[in-house]
Amino acid sequence: MDVKWGALGQVFVVSLAVSVAVVVVFSLGVMALSARRSVREHHGDGGSGAVVAATLCFTACAAVVLYGLYLIVPQFH
């Protein structure tokens, strides 16, 4: 038997790191959106900083998704 424990460990570490990163960044984006709504509710406008933060967060997530697409579609390799 030749179980590639090293590869399995790699899968675990990479999955954990990427998943946690994506979910945390996405959650931060959600927080930013939520913050913007709260700011607007109280002041009528503003919250542009929150919009920028949210955009950054979701762009980062989109980049990961695109990388996922790249991995899935063999024609890109």
Binding site: V14, S19, L71
Partner: peptide
């Protein structure tokens, strides 16, 4: 749902591209 799907996607892609 998001956390589960994101994790599952990552694990699936990592597993198929890291040789396990």
């Amino acid at each position: 749902g998001f956390a589960a799907e994101a994790s599952a996607t990552t694990v699936i892609l990592a597993s198929s591209h890291l040789g396990f």
